[in-house]
Design a protein around this nucleic acid. Sequence first.
DNA 1: GCTGTTTTTGGTTAATCTACCAAAAACAGT
DNA 2: ACTGTTTTTGGTAGATTAACCAAAAACAGC
Lengths: 187, 187
Amino acid sequence: MPEPTRRRASKVRRSILEATRDILAHQGVKKLSQTNVAKAAGVRQSHVTYYFPKRSDLVTALLEEHIQQMDGALADRGGVSEITAALDVIARDAARMRFFVGLIVECEQDEALRGLLTAHTRQFDGLVARYFGREPGDVDVGLFLNTLRGCGLMHLLHGGRGEIEAPHEIAGRFGLVLPPRPASEGG
Amino acid sequence: MPEPTRRRASKVRRSILEATRDILAHQGVKKLSQTNVAKAAGVRQSHVTYYFPKRSDLVTALLEEHIQQMDGALADRGGVSEITAALDVIARDAARMRFFVGLIVECEQDEALRGLLTAHTRQFDGLVARYFGREPGDVDVGLFLNTLRGCGLMHLLHGGRGEIEAPHEIAGRFGLVLPPRPASEGG
DNA sequence: GCTGTTTTTGGTTAATCTACCAAAAACAGT
DNA sequence: ACTGTTTTTGGTAGATTAACCAAAAACAGC
């Protein structure tokens, strides 16, 4: 058993991951340290090392959980409203972009993490393509999402200030419209 | 004299700034430290503190010089080819986006730096608007540039791999075309 | 060549960071 | 209740960081 059982379900482990997420989203990658995480989680610093022996373990677990949550919210129900919300978040939620940028910065030192993150974004792009009735890899969808990402990045830079056109309006500029209900969207 | 004279023109100072730029662009913000900068510049660590007493002084000076260089290349000649090249860089040059992302991360701890960077991007956006015969603050131009930024960010994430549509083609999607020569472009 | 300023040298400092460790405590299965 | 595992505690280690400093050296103006 290389992977202990209880270790994965621990309450402490959970609080550490949550603290990590909060710090990365609200204070940025420069503030992400074992000390700060432990403080925010209300546990000892050595707990962080215990559950995540290397820094990369912590960040990787964070991203894995994030992906899992996204999958739960998006893929399972395939809900239109969830995707709509997710698109909005990309362009208008500074904390989320801070989180994303932090991950990108971490990727610079961790190719495995980069693999995870690229795969995740690719999958998300494919999901959004479906949402608009396009094939995965669709160029319009790719550009549209990158537009949102650029908006989000500038929104982060400007300190969360400034108005941003609504995602579905931006989508229109790329010829992207929601096809008539695919007859499988549960309320 | 709060601002010493020779201090600003020093060869050492220049090499420090160049090393800082290179590290930020090619290794990322996590590798930006006095030690690494000094090593890359071939000077002693205490030199870095001497010329840039605080870390923020170093980053600020770096951005100021960057802005100055951009101004020199773009505003002076107002050259179409220079802007074309700059647009290309945003979307396709991973090192430049790494540099930009690094600055954004630094802004999180330095509001003055954020002011500098936001002002710079705003000015650049205005310049590009002119380039397309639009007014500063033009929504199409803003979205277009953010598209390039989003492309650049994803390009950085994917480790500099992957093809990207040419900027002027993307511009077309926003109804942006170069007006007939304004009769003032020097070859 | 003297004088005051700038720069360089070579260290030190205090803070912070990741990682490690041994021993106590809590817990689980039986 | 005993046994082995997991977790917690508390502390340490070694690296790395930005920042500071005194004294030597280089330099500039006169």
